[in-house]
Simulated assay, not measured.
Amino acid sequence: MDFVRDVCAEDALEENLRFVSDALDGKCTPREIIRNYFLKDFYKDHCSTHQKRPIYWMLDFGKKNGFKCLIYMHRYQPDLLVRVRTNYVHEQQERYRTQLAHLEEAVAQVDISQRVKLNKQIKKLNDQLAETITFGEKIHHLAEQMIAIGLRDKRDRFRHLYH
């Protein structure tokens, strides 16, 4: 959404988001439609368009959507994985921990029907947090190597990190 806000005038943001979401044929709010597209379909469409030689890579670890990150291959630098881990993976872990703390406080103060709903959210967040911790450990090993790669071999070096 920040990209659309930066490119378009602030007063036209919602109209532009609606235009994009209408092209994607979703049944939620424009923001949810666009978010779901990037989470589920963008990378598949991108690979299809670029005949399995994408210029964007999706770093993705797990089925719980704990963390996903698109990387533009032409901007790759040896310290990129360090920056992804430090600036994004760790921050996402902290967001999960904060949300969990709030939900766990709320569980003690609600009735049983609400408690079931909150416990489901807590389980999902715990699963996502566990996924990001595992991903952080995996990417840490690669980040320490500060791998410099050429455009031809970039995809092959990181095949195990993305789909």
Rank of each mutant, 00 (worst) to 15 (best):
R5V: 02
V7K: 12
V7N: 10
E14T: 06
N16D: 04
N16S: 05
L17H: 01
F19R: 14
D22S: 12
D22C: 09
K27N: 14
I34S: 02
R35K: 15
L39E: 11
L39M: 10
D41M: 07
F42P: 05
K44P: 00
H46N: 05
H46Q: 04
S48W: 05
T49S: 14
T49R: 15
R53E: 14
R53Q: 15
I55A: 08
W57G: 03
L59P: 00
L59C: 06
D60H: 11
N65H: 14
L70K: 07
I71C: 08
I71Q: 00
Y72L: 15
M73I: 13
H74L: 11
H74G: 04
H74C: 07
R75T: 13
D79R: 08
L81D: 00
V82Q: 10
V82D: 07
V84K: 02
V84H: 02
R85K: 14
R85Y: 05
T86M: 06
Y88V: 01
E91W: 01
E91T: 05
Q92M: 12
Y96K: 03
H102L: 10
H102P: 00
L103G: 04
E105T: 07
E105D: 11
A106D: 11
V107Q: 06
A108Y: 09
Q109W: 00
I112F: 10
I112T: 12
Q114I: 01
Q114T: 06
R115I: 02
K117W: 03
L118M: 14
N119H: 09
K120V: 03
K123Q: 13
N126Y: 02
A130H: 09
E131D: 13
T132R: 02
I133N: 06
G136P: 00
K138N: 09
H140S: 12
H141F: 09
Q145N: 08
I147F: 01
A148D: 11
K154H: 12
